[in-house]
Design a protein around this nucleic acid. Structure first.
Lengths: 342, 342
DNA sequence: TTGTATGCGTTATCAG
DNA sequence: CTGATAACGCATACAA
């Protein structure tokens, strides 16, 4: 690849035109495929461009084209395992086209977020992808901006904005559906921090599905606690000691589920024979190495990021949209909910 | 923030000059603090700029300044928990200045990497940060490039390049040092995949430190296996069954350590009373929720990313450097290696 | 100290 | 179909 050598004198369109023996204007048209150019001359230009490994200067281009071929990704907290897949999906979607991604992280600081926003704006990005840290709705930044903004993971509080967030409610429903299909009917829901909408939505969906079967969650819908294995263990222990019968533990996250699995083993309860266990997020490192491997709900965050990015591209193109789009999710069955087909 | 409104007619330097009642050139000089401008007029210009919330168009600027204020971050595999902290540190270092980060991911595909590289080059980035997926040396891409390149995490194979990678050898040494300080002398090293230099370096450092005390690793230096809890359990089980005495298990990763902890509990061995356990990477989610909380070696990846970014900025400024810089690491003590001060 | 004029690399608008 | 030429927004030698 000689194209790499762009030292002092990067080859310009003028060079190409000269080598091709045409005018600058013609060279431009030939390369951009716009306007009518004789096939023969176009080929001459293209050959010359290839020979010189010409790459158009994006700055010169951006100077009078209103669009810059760059979008900004404003993350609230990069140090978060949920934003990574989103980022990946977005990068993927953009990478396919010609737009590239300018990254800026706010470190969970709203002052800093504003700073980063202004920097992105100063760089003249064509659009903005705002990636939240949780699925809790977040303040809109769209007001006064002249470029399109799409919110991912954390939806905007303003319904006029366009947001993409995973369907936690349906995740709860599907999880219960899965457990029911395995013949479980006495299901408890060990949940995380109730200040997270994800926690509330998941249990709401689960409870709804149970109700449709004339059932209700063992222990109720209020088993909230800190996300993390510790609470998974403690809560499981309480359930066992309470003497209440249950044949499945649905846990608000894979971490909680790992704690539950641990505690069940200590209580000499067999998984999945005595109790089925499942989690949410399908965090491979935890789920696949669990004993037994853990059934979990895949939130499809990468797909979410990709969709958001594609929609942003469309919005930049002029097709705007609004509202909250719910990303689909699916159960990934593993051994922890095996057997018992009823 | 009115600065956000850059619609069709973003305010230009000409507007500022006009409002300030000076010429375009003077306005430029006043704002860039270059050349001699009367303090009074400068203030007039600055005021005008503020009033119009003027933001210089980076494209116009880049057109004739040889530098673009943008660096490219080329990651081999974004979907990797080790690159995230590196990315964070780099973003941090750049965010402090005025340069911003263009992200491109290669999806572990060398063809795609080349593609992304060319895209970054086409965008005229001032420098390149190449972030690897492992600490294994990787092919250099510096040849023929006219911009500085810094390698992070995975060092370049070419010693003429500048690379930043964590000091895994010292990590091994420090781990043993820590265990020795807790009075342990019969230490086994359960390791990960030997195709990773990280695995080999860590055990080499550990063995070296043991040798200095006239000791050697229980079970030798060859207890390699797949990274992951499963191997941690299996290997621990073998060690227990072998009847060999040991009072500490040093594990090549936190995942391995988690497996070891699990297995020890099943074998009715107490941690840390009977056996101390520690890991590497200090992955909070695993280490803090372990039973008991796991001592681990923090690899300081964020700092590594920050250093690399700073060095890249310097290189862009003209101060080049070469060689492999080893990032410092440190032990984070938790309960799993408590008590036993000897 | 300030202003004028020119160039950076492209695209777009006209004439030829 | 092709070629001058004027923008785009800013920096900068050079002139005043």
């Amino acid at each position: 690849m000689d194209a790499r050598k762009r030292g002092k004198g990067a080859t310009t369109l003028t060079d190409v035109a000269e080598l091709a023996g045409v005018s600058l204007a013609t060279a431009s048209k030939a390369i951009n495929g716009v306007s009518q150019v004789r096939a023969e001359t176009r080929q001459k230009v293209l050959d010359a461009a290839a020979a010189l490994s010409f790459t158009p200067n994006p700055f010169a281009k951006a100077l009078n084209s209103a669009t810059t071929g760059t979008i900004g990704m404003l993350t609230q907290d990069l140090d978060n395992r949920f934003v990574l897949p989103v980022l990946l999906g977005a990068e993927d979607a953009f990478g396919a086209g010609s737009t590239s991604v300018l990254l800026a992280d706010a470190r969970s600081d709203s002052i800093r977020e504003n700073h980063q926003l202004n920097m992105l704006l100063a760089k003249r990005v064509d659009g903005l992808l705002v990636v939240g840290r949780t699925t809790n709705p977040r303040p809109s930044i769209t007001a006064g901006l002249s470029i399109p903004v799409v919110y991912v993971y954390a939806p905007s509080e303003d319904p006029e904005d366009l947001s993409f967030t995973p369907d936690n409610h349906d995740a709860g429903r599907q999880a219960v559906e899965h457990l029911l299909s395995r013949g479980r009917r006495r299901i408890a829901f060990i949940n995380g921090d109730p200040s997270y909408t994800a926690a509330r939505d998941r249990v709401a969906g689960a409870a709804e599905r149970m109700r449709e079967e004339g059932l209700s969650l063992v222990g109720g819908t209020g088993l909230f606690g800190p996300w993390g294995e510790r609470w998974g263990r403690r809560c499981t222990e309480s359930l066992v000691e309470s003497g209440e019968r249950f044949d499945a533990l649905l846990c608000g996250s894979d971490q909680l589920a790992r704690g539950a699995l641990d505690q069940l083993r200590e209580s000499a309860l067999s998984v999945p024979d005595d109790v089925a266990v499942m989690g949410f997020d399908n965090w491979d490192v935890l789920a696949e190495e669990a004993r037994p491997p853990l059934t979990s709900v895949e939130m499809n965050l990468q797909q979410l990021g990709r969709s958001a990015a594609q929609q942003l591209v469309r919005a930049i193109g002029g097709t705007s949209a609004r509202g909250v789009r719910l990303g689909s999710v699916r159960v990934v069955p593993r051994e922890s909910t095996g057997s018992w087909t009823l």
